[in-house]
Amino acid sequence: MKRFYISLAMLASVIAFSIYGHVTLYRNFERINEDLKQCVEALEKEDEQGVFEHLSKAEKTWDESKWLIGSVYSHQTKIEMRHLFLLIRELAESGDKENFKEKTEEMIAYIQTSIDSIAVRLYNIF
């Protein structure tokens, strides 16, 4: 019976961790997207401080999520997302508004696709 209880505990902890990881990642991605959208809004209002504030928030959330991302997405996805973040930061700092908006919107679409791909839906399971 000892093995039975150990396996029950293992199963419960893995499921609990999975639920925690899934929910955390899902929420963090939504937060990143929200911050990036506000970034674009701030850009349109020509609020430079707002752009950097929201971009920093999105980057911070991304940093907090990095350890969980590997359990859902491949290395390639992580690299691509990191690349986009660095590019957006560089464009923001160089003041290239047009490209900044384009790349931020691309990032928003990328993250939205990622959110959709981890949603607990039949089309993701099968």
Partner: peptide, 8 residues
Amino acid sequence: MLIVVIRA
């Protein structure tokens, strides 16, 4: 990750 559990 929850999908992994469901898939398994």
